[in-house]
Design a binder for these strands. Structure first.
Lengths: 241, 241
DNA sequence: TTCCGGAAAATGTGATCACAAAAGAAGATT
DNA sequence: AATCTTCTTTTGTGATCACATTTTCCGGAA
């Protein structure tokens, strides 16, 4: 494998991806997929951005085959879209679609939280509290991306406590679909609010109170990214073409 | 494009897929994806079945590249699994995982039904009733696969009435994950029950009664495939290796 | 028979290339 | 200036091949 390949040495039009080193033994395809996925999840792409296979292959210093596979996978989970004319784009979001995504997030995540409660040990809950501290730390430092990732990890840690859980991939699909608009929002919001319902969720977890946990998670989503109303989303989308 | 390629003319170990003609203009990749997806959805594959890229490429009379893309997409939605040793298999199901999937189906589909109600016209409801008639017809004739597909179409038709709906792909992901065990169940169930809550759901739709619709859908799932309890699933899985 | 080791076959991976379709650029026509 | 036409470039698609890893097979030793 690993033959030489010629760099096309052109100016890359492809957006710069947050780089991360390629773990030993990871396939080219998997690397491309993971890196793209991460980039979309944290809002590195704008809605409507068009992607080219060869451009990405050059950026990742590989060839079209594994990149195309990665892009295809990303379309399967709603992160990208292959249009009729065979162009590849980051899906555009309408206010209505945005509201559907938020509503779906609430349904999925409150469900996942309920199913996880029985599996959460006190020790695990302590580790989740630590994560919440990390979030507030990132916020005070002003590290938006860091806060975002830590926040996702906070939610993920709760839901995946259930070893037989099957909802996490679907939840992440929704996160991916919200990624692009999240990127826009982050740019236009100068200061980060510290309003979250994490403490409330944690208390409810400690009490093993299903309804309270579900309500705290729902409120957290509603008041977080879900807090953008119809008009705000329209404005954001207009600002970013 | 469309160069010649040599048929390896061997006995194909790959399970026979329900054939369907390739629509004009559809790419090889898309054809492979659609056909495999359909096959898995109706239970044509057993849990644990292993798949090979070249085998499928031969069966579909194409080459590894587009087939691999299709398989990769199917893994993204939980229909297949690439193992560590790079083998591709239909995921195995444990009773606990089965229960999680059913529970997730209920959460997702009752949510999708709620969000669809406002968009359903009386005319659309009439068409859904016709679909329900088709299901009962298929059942009396003994056409299991037909009944299954019509049943899925019944659900899909309701949820997709909402034009901004985003849950359908996730719901189909869950259907795909249930497909293999559904295939086993269909083999070991000699007679088809006609117990469904479709009439109840339709009446609730007509009344635009959100809670009643959600409850009817939930009951339909619980008493349908969801009706298999822990013991029954274990038995089914044991019967089919 | 059982277990081990090495050869042979099968299989996933990824780079490359030819092809077709789409997009973009440039010039002519209205 | 706007629109259409033609040529060039870009881009997605899919077949093919070389390579590395894994699996399978088979013969010999315990």
């Amino acid at each position: 494998m690993m033959q030489l390949h010629h760099d096309r040495s052109k100016t890359l039009k492809t957006p710069v991806l947050p780089a991360f080193p390629r773990p030993e033994g990871m396939t080219t395809h998997d690397y491309a997929f993971t890196r793209l996925r991460q980039a979309i999840m944290v809002g590195a792409f704008r809605p409507g951005t068009s992607i080219t296979i060869r451009g990405l292959a050059d950026a990742l210093e590989s060839s079209p085959t594994p990149v195309r596979e990665a892009l295809r996978q990303l379309t399967s989970i709603g992160a990208l879209q292959f249009l009729e004319n065979r162009r590849i784009v980051v899906p555009r979001i309408t206010p209505a679609r945005f509201e559907e995504l938020i509503s779906l997030r609430i349904a999925l995540e409150s469900h996942a939280a309920r199913r996880a409660i029985a599996h959460l040990s006190d020790r695990q809950i302590d580790r989740i509290v630590a994560l919440d501290d990390a979030i507030e730390m990132a916020i005070t430092v002003g590290d938006k991306a860091g806060a975002l990732i830590a926040n996702q990890e906070f939610h993920r840690r709760i839901y995946t406590a259930n070893p037989d859980q099957v909802a996490m991939p679907l939840i992440e699909s929704v996160w991916l679909q919200l990624g692009p608009i999240l990127g826009i929002a982050m740019e236009h919001v100068t200061e980060l609010y510290v309003v979250d319902r994490h403490r409330e969720a944690i208390d409810a977890l400690r009490r093993r109170d299903e309804d309270a946990v579900a309500e705290a998670i729902a409120a957290d989503i509603r008041e977080g990214i879900g807090g953008f109303d119809h008009a705000a989303i329209s404005k954001l989308l207009a600002l970013a073409g």
